[in-house]
């Protein structure tokens, strides 16, 4: 068995009285693309947000169980959340460039982390924009406002912004939901390159996308993890009736 980069162990999660995750356990191998998919309200985004502790700020929630990153529980008392979030980057459904220029958007996280070395910052800026497959389009206008980019470019900029911090794990929450097919293709292609360097967990915006990018896939339904198997198997020969119904479009 391959070493697990991220493992969830018996996660139960509640928003007030509603249970969003029910005893979920799974392990994510390093350097691969793991897909969380299923109908809305299944808990996939919640689980994603738990992996970099973004839900800490949400009031009136409760969690039991453990999430391990390199076999260390990220909910332990001695974990610095800011440092954890640098190790576990996240890209959201809507492209959210912060106010400011393209350059500022990418280097912002580095500056927050206390990096001052100008050469190093410039190096990382270029590298992460190249990795996010947007460098060629914007290299001549790094100092124009990020809001002047198209939606697809903004989303790839946000990916670059996460990559700039050189995270170990990259979480993507429907990163292509607002994008046109060409931009979607570019993002998906870059995922295949990025998994050499990072561990990627993605909530795709369609089953087709799930099938295209997945090394392994987990099917979530109403807070339950129904099935978690390699992508080549789960989308062709699902074991569970509910997975099959969802994949073949009988509900969803």
């Amino acid at each position: 068995m391959v070493e697990k980069k991220v493992s969830a162990e018996n996660i139960n999660y509640f928003y007030g009285g509603n249970q969003a995750l029910r005893d979920v356990s799974l392990g994510v191998p390093a350097h691969s693309v793991t897909v969380f998919f299923g109908p809305a309200g299944g808990g996939k985004t919640t689980l994603l947000r738990l992996i970099n502790r973004l839900n800490d700020m949400v009031e009136n929630t409760r969690m039991t169980g453990r999430i391990l990153l390199d076999n260390k529980n990220i909910y332990d008392e001695d974990v610095d959340v800011a440092i954890l979030r640098r190790r576990v980057g996240m890209v959201f459904a809507l492209p959210l460039p912060l106010p400011g220029t393209i350059r500022e958007n990418v280097t912002y996280g580095l500056k927050l982390a206390g990096m001052r070395d100008g050469h190093r910052i410039a190096e990382i800026l270029e590298k992460s924009l190249v990795q996010a497959a947007i460098w060629d389009e914007i290299k001549d206008r790094l100092d124009s406002p990020a809001s002047s980019l198209s939606g697809g470019q903004q989303q790839r900029l946000c990916i670059a912004r996460s990559l700039a911090l050189e995270p170990e794990v990259l979480l993507l929450d429907e990163p292509t939901s607002g994008l046109d097919p060409i931009s979607t293709r570019k993002v998906e292609d870059s995922l295949q390159e990025l998994k050499q360097l990072y561990t990627i967990i993605i909530v795709p915006h369609s089953i087709q996308q799930a099938a295209r990018v997945a090394d392994q896939a987990a099917f979530f339904l109403m807070g339950d993890l129904i099935e978690y198997r390699p992508g080549t198997e789960i989308f062709t020969t699902p074991r569970d009736k509910r997975t099959e119904d969802y994949i073949t479009g009988r509900f969803g």
């Binding site: 979030r85 996240m90 959210l96 912060l98 996280g109 927050l112 982390a113 911090l165």
Partner: peptide, 11 residues
């Protein structure tokens, strides 16, 4: 989402 974006960058 703005807060999330900043937090996710390790702010």
């Amino acid at each position: 989402s703005y807060r999330d974006a900043a937090l996710a960058m390790g702010a």
